[in-house]
Nucleic acid binder design. Structure first.
Lengths: 231, 231
DNA sequence: CTACAATTCAAACGTTTGTTTGAATGGAAA
DNA sequence: TTTCCATTCAAACAAACGTTTGAATTGTAG
């Protein structure tokens, strides 16, 4: 691809679209949806102001396109990795750590991709899980649904003894940890003393995250006595 | 207070300010900062459009005031609880679960306060940790700093064998889990199958969160062999 | 070359934004 | 009552917003 596009531009199949998506990804990450104006977005992309409405229809449709572009392939990679693991296991239950790694690996690999814009996207994504706009949240939920169902099933098979509602909550906690960690890396650092060079070492981060999440997922069931009484 | 202010309003010391802060808290939670206009905000508060600029100076200053009003007392409560625990322990090291509960308790108690607006604030807060505006993030960080230092010290004393950088990361993970859980409750639910009635049972949620976080915090240290080689 | 459709462009559209202004209003002190 | 300061109010401000328009430009097929 890079070889072909040298000196002479042979064909820009969707160049304007791509430039807009890239610029949107970065500016949405930097300033948020509302605070990013079409004028600064199109200026950054080097396209005309009207190009967004021509190619995407509206600003909201552009936001949707930004997420669709990356999220589909990311979750497809997660599912593919899970498929691979289960094939390899040949019927035997998977290790929980392997399932966890299959889930968080896709995000960590993207955050290493600083040049391709993957890092921008991951940070944007982590923040958008709690976006005020219900429309955006439901889009994210919809794009995640297949992968979530798939991983829920995998965890259920790996942890048959765990109550279903407890598993759902622990998946929720795991998801939150991942989302916050990826979104807040290099943004807010509430706890001082973190060596900055560790920040983007995805390998080290993966090891740390996996250890934490696995322990949390496998935590002993909490005492439910007084809780049940209170409820 | 409620008894005195019946039938005849004796004195509204900062009524307008309070009404604005309450309306801002709710609308910022519902729609975000940018998407909340001064007109809908002042309309909801039942005050004149110019009142915000008169009492707070600007919209940004109002945002800051919204956080200062709640965050200071919340973190003071956290520190007070930790003081109480340490006094009670009389020199002996604290249980990690107790420290965790001292930290998450304040947030959980606020989310039970649906009438007083505490729930609105907690959700708003959880989202704002990853706010695009650097100015807002650094305000949050500044308001959190004293409590964070305090709890970091408590964890260090409780876990003297844990490497400092590992502890910092695990505190980061714990903080992320709490932030996401509180912010995303009743908003996005990526994992289906959660019984909605459990949503606001703060007792049950506290038990679940504590079990998960404690296990994560005390997780066995990850294998650092291949990681060190890669770095 | 001509003709056609896709795309780009500058300009303007009507709203809405946060903020400011100066007069009106209110309650407490002199 | 008169004075005074704090607050409230309706109105207007300039600036920026997302979107639309119709003409200019481009690349391609007949």
């Amino acid at each position: 691809m890079e070889i072909a596009v040298s000196l002479r531009q042979i064909k820009p199949p969707h160049e304007t679209r791509t430039r807009i998506l890239d610029a949107a990804e970065e500016l949405f990450m930097l300033h948020g949806f509302e605070a990013t104006s079409m004028r600064q977005l199109t200026a950054k992309a080097g396209v005309n102001l009207a190009a967004v409405n021509y190619h995407f229809g509206s600003k909201d449709a552009l936001i949707e396109a930004v997420f669709r572009r990356r999220l589909d392939v990311m979750n497809a990679a997660r599912i593919a990795e899970l498929d691979r693991l289960e094939k390899e296991a040949a019927g035997r239950p998977l290790a929980t750590a392997a399932i966890i790694r299959a889930f968080i690996g896709a995000g960590l690999r993207m955050i290493e991709d600083a040049r391709g814009g993957g890092r921008n996207f991951i940070r944007l994504l982590g923040r958008t899980y709690t976006d005020p706009q219900k429309q955006i949240r439901s889009l994210i939920g919809q794009l995640y649904a297949p992968a979530m169902e798939r991983f829920k099933g995998a965890f259920e098979r790996a942890l048959p003894q765990m109550p279903r509602d407890e598993l759902v909550w622990r998946m929720h906690f795991m998801f939150g940890t991942l989302a916050y960690t990826l979104a807040a890396t290099d943004t807010v650092q509430l706890i001082a003393g973190c060596k900055p060079e560790d920040r983007y070492d995805a390998r080290l981060l993966e090891a740390r995250l996996t250890a934490f999440l696995q322990a949390g997922l496998l935590a002993p069931l909490h005492e439910a006595k007084d809780v049940k009484k209170a409820a």
